[in-house]
Simulated assay, not measured.
Amino acid sequence: MRLLVSRHLENFLALYEAGNMRAAAQRKGVSQPALTKSLQLIENELDVELFERTHKGLVATETGHILYRHACAIEQEARFAALEISHMREAMGGRIKIGVGQVLAVSIFPALLADFHRRFPNVEASVEAGISNGLLQSLMRDNLDFVIAALPEASLPDKFVTLPLLSTDMVIICSTEHPLCREKEITAEALTAFRRVGFLEDREFESRARQCFGNRSEALRPILQTTSLNIMFGLLTTTDYYAIVSDMIVPKAEREGLAARNMEGGLWTLDVELICKASLVSSKPISAFKEAFSARTGKAG
């Protein structure tokens, strides 16, 4: 990919992300003087200062932030071009950056990634698991190439597209000894008598809960928020708390000694989609992931 992206632009990305000349030089495997000269060439070309030099390191200026945003987009497009070209001449190689929802990360996604790597063993993948809102922010900053997660209600910018993968229903999980397990079907009144454990910064949940529960949704505010399913499950097995999660996580929850319960009248359904830039949607890595997902779920592509 070196020929597709300027060496100086690569050096700038390293400096921005490291925030330190020494760390960036180590990351790039070059000397600090060489990195300094590379930065000066860009700054002279643009006639701007990209970083403020402080005793703590490098702090990006406003123009530095602007260049970083565009540099990430250039680097991403170059990586995907290199991936596709390498696939035409030999086994596809390169690097992809994927974001995946918390529940998917511990259910279907590991097998999906294994399928992809068996097909393309030379492609390096970095995976970030998180809440949809945060993953989409990273996607829009070009820090991720694509995201597999629940589709948000808010519309996406025009340059992004979504590919439907599956739909999943939300269920209640709690300890097998929980009083809710004695209910044939759980009512909103019964549910709001207990405290909920939720995912950190899950604003999408709050929006769906308001639609489903109306004024009662305030009673669903979490007593604890976490990014860890292990912490969530640990709390649920030892307290009378409950959680509302995708039914994809039920097999894992049951292995941890938890029970899944349905809400009277049901909760809500989430659409899981692959989200990426329109310019990348036909690329080989995106197509391969879509095919692997279809093969795993039995859904026609």
Results as ranks from 00 to 15, higher is better:
Gly134Thr: 06
Arg119Pro: 03
Gly101Asp: 14
Gly101Val: 08
Asp142Ala: 12
Val127Asn: 01
Leu104Gln: 14
Ala105Val: 05
Gly99Tyr: 09
Arg118Gly: 14
Ala105His: 11
Leu104His: 06
Ala125Thr: 15
Leu144Asp: 02
Glu124Ile: 06
Arg141Ser: 13
Glu128Ile: 14
Leu135Pro: 00
Ala125Asn: 02
Val100Leu: 02
Val127Lys: 03
Val103Leu: 06
Gln102Leu: 13
Asn133Gln: 15
Gly134Cys: 02
Gly101Phe: 05
Leu139Phe: 12
Asn133Thr: 14
Val123Gln: 01
Asp115Leu: 08
Ala129Ser: 14
Leu113Thr: 01
Gln137Leu: 09
Leu112Trp: 08
Pro121Met: 11
Gln137Phe: 08
Arg118Asn: 14
Leu139Thr: 07
Phe116Tyr: 15
Val147Thr: 01
Gly130Lys: 08
Asp142Arg: 08
Leu144Thr: 07
Phe120Lys: 00
Val103Ile: 09
Asn133Lys: 13
Asn133Ala: 15
Val127Ile: 13
Ser107Thr: 15
Leu136Val: 05
Gln102Ile: 12
Glu124Met: 07
Arg118Ser: 10
Ser126Arg: 11
Leu135Ile: 04
Gly101Lys: 09
Asn122Ser: 07
Gly134His: 09
Phe146Asn: 07
Glu124Tyr: 10
Val103Pro: 00
Phe146Val: 07
Phe116Lys: 01
Ala129Asn: 05
Ile131His: 02
Gln137Ile: 12
Gly99His: 07
Gln137Arg: 14
Ser126Met: 12
Asn143Gly: 13
Val127Ala: 03
Ala125Glu: 00
Glu124His: 12
Leu139Val: 11
Asp115Ala: 11
Ser132Glu: 15
Val106Ser: 10
Gln102His: 09
Phe109Tyr: 15
Pro110Gln: 06
Glu128Leu: 13
Ser138Lys: 15
Phe116Cys: 04
Asp145Thr: 09
Leu144Arg: 04
Phe146His: 07
Arg118Pro: 01
Arg118Leu: 15
Val103Tyr: 02
Gln137Cys: 05
Val106Thr: 12
Ala111Asp: 12
Val127Ser: 01
Gln137Ala: 08
Val100Ile: 08
Phe116Ala: 02
Leu112Ser: 03
Glu128His: 14
Asn122Asp: 12
Gly101Ala: 15
Asn133Cys: 04
Leu144Trp: 05
Phe120His: 15
Pro110Asp: 08
Met140Gly: 06
Leu139Ser: 05
Val123Glu: 02
Leu136Ser: 01
Leu135Asp: 00
Ala105Ser: 15
Gly101Pro: 12
Asp145Gly: 07
Arg119Asn: 09
Asp142Phe: 08
Asp142Tyr: 12
Leu135Ala: 01
Phe116His: 03
Pro121Trp: 13
Gly99Cys: 09
Leu112Asn: 03
Ala114Gln: 08
